[in-house]
């Protein structure tokens, strides 16, 4: 991602982007960070595409297996699990990428108030972590996630927003 600097210093950054772009961004950031050292990835959407990551690593001509060992992954399938994962501090200040944070908070089996309470707990731990290590949240919000996203925007030190690209009218060939 030439557009955004790879997070190296302790901050809480938020990247909001359309689905395809955020997936590509996630892969690029992970590959970039895994090149130099360990990186933590918390996946809330069950969609970390490891095979694309492998291709990206190979494209960058990196030591594939060494880089794969650098990437530490844990997945959360409920908002309770996401909150518990975020409570764990990053060892030695290594960078943390959080993918699809909001997906687990859309689970209608948990009451809305409960989910909002858990989001506050999550944000508290994200901020705490960001004092010692770089933290990047990558989300592609659904309309229903807006109230949750608003709270995250308020909390983040820096917010990057990418709008979907509307293609210019193309003239047909024939």
């Amino acid at each position: 991602m030439e557009l955004i600097p790879v997070p190296h210093s302790p901050t809480l950054q938020l990247l909001v982007a359309p689905s395809s772009f955020q997936r590509k961004a996630a892969i690029t950031f992970i590959a970039e960070l895994a090149q130099t050292g360990p990186v933590r990835v918390l996946d809330g959407g069950n969609r970390l595409d490891i095979l694309s990551l492998n291709r990206e690593l190979r494209r960058k001509d990196l030591l594939l297996y060494t880089a794969l060992e650098h990437v530490q992954v844990a997945r959360a399938f409920t908002c309770y699990q996401m909150t518990t994962l975020l409570e764990q501090p990053a060892p030695g200040g290594i960078p943390t990428l959080v993918l699809n944070l909001l997906t687990t908070f859309q689970d209608e089996n948990a009451p809305l108030l409960e989910r909002l309470r858990l989001l506050e707990t999550s944000l508290y731990h994200l901020q705490k972590n960001a004092r010692h290590s770089p933290v990047l949240l990558i989300v592609h919000p659904q309309p229903t996630e807006e109230p949750f996203l608003a709270r995250i925007r308020e909390t983040a030190d820096r917010v990057w927003v990418f709008e979907p690209h509307h293609p210019a009218i193309q003239f047909s060939l024939f």
Binding site: N46, D49, I50, L51, F77
Partner: peptide, 11 residues
């Protein structure tokens, strides 16, 4: 639960 890595047929 699981199934983050896509299946071999999908791949």
């Amino acid at each position: 639960m699981g199934r983050t890595v896509s299946s071999i047929t999908q791949t």
